[in-house]
Design a protein around this nucleic acid. Structure first.
Length: 320
DNA sequence: CATCAGGGCCCTG
DNA sequence: CAGGGCCCTGAT
């Protein structure tokens, strides 16, 4: 394991997101399994990242409200950053945190909704992980319980990730694709990731060679992106939804994997199990063209409520 | 002790 | 398009 890198240089600026902007409900998703590449506490968020091949730490602090949002952004680095670099980085962060994304029409339309008009009001889509990160995460999620997912992710980070320290937080930065390629399949299998080793390596090779580029994909139409991502070895329909979300692609339809099916059945129709088709129909009936985005917020809200006060039936579904 | 499914996906027939 | 196999683990 490489030694910890400490990021001592700081640059701070202020950002005004488009209202309504709900900081906590945007950056934190309690339904997501915990990984040490990000840290949240109320009103504050830390995330490691690589941008233009530089290792960075970002800290966002909410200094406003949902209707009058304001964020203090601090960038941590090893060396001084150029003006141009910072400018490009901020543009990227604007996209990742949905700071310029105007959802006022959406929140106006659903202001009387019991969830969207209250607890989740102002939440934006989570897009701050890199495409590569979200692919790696999607693969450790496949066919595994949460506990094993966490084990695999930590083993990988421990072996290949970079430990970073900034603002008194010690976290990991995801490995460079090249590092996994170099490690080789057997080395990865020793980390008990099983058959996934092959997927990691194949996909990492493509990233290392620059065959897949997040920024290029952002600019392409959804259908094209979809086709390209499904070609990746180890990426199927369930993972695809995560990837499209990260790239800010709007979807008309999603696949509802079995686990989510159980949860949506209870959440939307108060039944044990209904078909994915019926779930989609109900979403459409309630939220129309916004149904995919709205459903993700309902899903997150469920986990927020669960975090505040345990929901027994959900507890059973979150198998550790 | 053995068996099995898990917050899928690939590959084969 | 249905179904077996995949790695490993904890639950039964």
């Amino acid at each position: 394991m490489a030694k910890t890198i400490t990021l001592k240089k700081k640059y701070s600026t202020e950002i005004i997101p488009k209202a309504p902007y709900n900081f906590n409900k945007t950056v934190c998703n309690p339904g997501h399994f915990p990984t040490p590449i990000e840290v949240w506490e109320p009103g504050k968020f830390w995330k490691t990242m690589r941008f233009k091949n530089k290792i960075l730490g970002t800290k966002l602090e909410s200094t406003g409200t949902i209707n009058k949002p304001k964020i203090k952004l601090t960038i941590f680095s090893t060396s001084k950053l150029s003006k141009k670099f910072i400018q490009d980085l901020i543009e990227d962060l604007n996209f990742r945190y949905g700071l310029n994304e105007d959802l006022s029409e959406f929140y106006e339309k659903f202001k009387s909704d019991s969830v969207l008009g209250t607890r989740m009001r102002g939440a934006h889509g989570r897009k701050f992980e890199s495409l590569y990160e979200i692919i790696m995460i999607s693969i450790v999620l496949q066919n595994a319980t949460v506990r094993r997912t966490v084990q695999m992710m930590n083993a990988l980070l421990n072996k290949c990730g970079q430990k970073i320290k900034f603002d008194n937080q010690e976290m990991y930065l995801i490995w460079k694709p090249q590092k996994l390629v170099k490690a080789g399949e057997q080395e990865l299998r020793n980390l008990k990731v099983g058959y996934r080793a092959k997927m990691f390596i194949r996909i990492s090779k493509q990233f290392a060679k620059g065959e897949i580029n997040e920024y290029r994909l952002r600019k392409k139409p959804s259908e094209e992106v979809k086709k390209e991502l499904l070609k990746l070895y180890g990426i199927g329909p369930a993972s695809l939804d995560n990837l499209l979300g990260i790239l800010g692609k709007h979807q008309l339809i999603i696949t509802i994997p079995p686990w989510e099916q159980k949860i949506y059945s209870r959440l939307l129709l108060n039944k044990k199990l209904v078909s994915p088709n019926k779930i989609l129909k109900e979403l459409k009936r309630r939220y129309g063209k916004w149904s995919i985005f709205a459903s993700s917020l309902l899903f997150e809200d469920l986990f927020w409520r669960h975090k505040e006060k345990s929901i027994p039936w959900l507890e059973k579904e979150i198998r550790l």
